[in-house]
């Protein structure tokens, strides 16, 4: 397996030296970064279409923010601060699943409940971080918050790839059922779709993809990459086909551009921020296109 990886890496480096690819790719860490982006971008784009249809945007943001607390707890209990995956997965899954469990059980609107959870989790994270401030270099938190693509290791990439496969398979297999269950519970039940189970599966998908993306995009902005490409695609797409396709392509373009451009022009911008700025620009372009081209508004009866 690691052989495959090093062959890919050497080939890319060779091409970069020949000038076929951007020159920054002559460095090993840059290739790791790019691979991570190519793997995670399309996955976020695909899952994002469901997030947008199911109106889980705020939920995704909240799970992303809970990653901060996950990292803080991880460092507190002595996990390596370059990849405290145990507590990241643990805390974020706990956060996402308990949020989903309490939905429909508190009589509160979903956004209210998410708001409460988000603030509690941030408060907990901030407290733990301040306790830690004396022990570790607090600047590593910058990496957690905004992504540190240049420290992506081979292990991180394998983890990303593994999670990408799981998420894509579950997404593709369950796509229609996820969509139908978000429209009408009775209609879903008549089609023997287990809406409750699917809700939990969906929440877990968002959580694991968020955790896996923390290194590339950072806790603060990972939710954004789940939402922005899909939102952009939604404004110009006429069918599910173009919606999903465009969302995946937008997410891929945003991640690759967000990783490569700062390296090429030597900008000290965190990868996550650059990726989201690219995605945001695509979004604005789509919204403008929709305003200018009336047929994109589609299906006027």
């Amino acid at each position: 397996m690691d052989n495959v990886f090093s062959v890919i890496k050497l080939t890319i480096q060779h091409w970069a030296e020949l000038g076929w690819l951007p020159s920054s790719l002559a460095y090993g860490f840059a290739i790791n970064a790019l691979l991570a982006g190519i793997i995670i971008g399309p996955v976020l784009g695909l899952l994002g279409t469901l997030v947008v249809v199911k109106r889980h945007a705020f939920f995704s943001e909240a799970v992303g923010h809970s990653a901060l607390t996950g990292v803080a707890i991880g460092i507190l209990v002595g996990e390596p601060y370059t990849g405290p995956y145990g507590s990241l997965f643990g805390f974020c899954l706990l956060f996402g699943i308990s949020l989903n469990y309490l939905r429909n059980r508190t009589g509160l609107a979903a956004d209210t409940l998410i708001g409460v959870f988000l603030s509690m989790s941030l408060a907990l994270g901030a407290s733990v971080l301040l306790i830690l401030a004396g022990k570790v270099n607090i600047h590593i938190m910058e990496n957690v918050l905004f992504g540190s693509i240049l420290t992506v290791s081979a292990e991180d990439i394998w983890l990303l790839a593994g999670i990408a496969v799981i998420v894509v398979v579950v997404c593709v297999v369950g796509y229609n059922r996820f969509i139908i269950s978000s429209f009408n519970a009775e209609l879903a039940a008549a089609r023997r779709i287990n809406t409750k189970l699917l809700d939990y599966v969906f929440v877990m998908l968002i959580t694991i993809v968020t955790v896996a993306s923390v290194k590339v995009i950072g806790a603060i902005l990972v939710g954004a990459l789940l939402v922005i490409p899909a939102a952009a695609a939604r404004t110009v797409a006429a069918s599910m086909r173009s919606f999903v396709l465009l969302s995946v392509v937008f997410a891929l373009i945003a991640t690759v551009a967000g990783i490569l451009i700062p390296m090429q022009v030597d900008l000290p911008v965190p990868s996550g921020a650059a990726i989201i700025i690219c995605a945001g620009s695509l979004f604005l372009a789509c919204v403008s296109a929709r305003t200018i081209l009336p047929h994109l508004r589609g299906g006027n009866a």
Binding site: Y175, N176, A233, R234, A237, S239, M240, R241, F243, G298
Partner: peptide, 29 residues
């Protein structure tokens, strides 16, 4: 069901909706 509400901007055609209900192969394929 009673007439369902759909977001006007949701890029889901009548065909997409029918496919989603009847098929396990994703509607975007």
């Amino acid at each position: 069901p009673q007439a369902l509400e759909f977001d006007r901007s949701l890029p889901m055609t009548v065909m997409d909706f029918m496919v989603s209900l009847q098929s396990t192969k994703p509607a975007f394929f």
